[in-house]
């Protein structure tokens, strides 16, 4: 089971958890397993084409999966996936 860090804006979709676990041998499989138990995340992570939305970055440990093998990147049990949408907050 890989660990997935959930950013604040997505926490309502996973019952408020800061991190959750999911199964899978690749980044795509892990995220699909995550979506299977938290359906709301589906449209937030994936576009209609099944690819990651361009406004969401996913990191395997500290590396952007897009520069690794994308959704096909292999994931081990000791790995951490970080989901990261942009935040804008600051001055207000």
């Amino acid at each position: 089971m890989a660990t997935i860090r959930i950013p604040p804006v997505l926490r309502p979709s996973v019952g408020g958890e800061r991190q959750v676990s999911a199964d899978g041998a690749t980044v795509g499989d892990v995220l699909k397993d995550l979506v299977a138990s938290h359906e709301e995340l589906g449209s937030q992570l994936f576009g209609a084409d099944g690819e990651l939305n361009r406004f969401v970055n996913v990191y395997l440990n500290d590396e952007d999966v897009r520069v690794l093998g994308g959704l096909e990147t292999a994931v081990g049990d000791a790995d951490t996936l970080q989901i990261l949408p942009a935040m804008a907050g600051g001055a207000a």
Partner: peptide, 20 residues
């Protein structure tokens, strides 16, 4: 390079007042 496009509104709580 980091964020080529902004997230949609429901993922971008930045248009109104938010707690911090």
């Amino acid at each position: 390079c980091l964020f080529p496009v902004p997230p949609p509104a429901e993922l971008a709580p930045s248009c109104g007042a938010n707690g911090v």
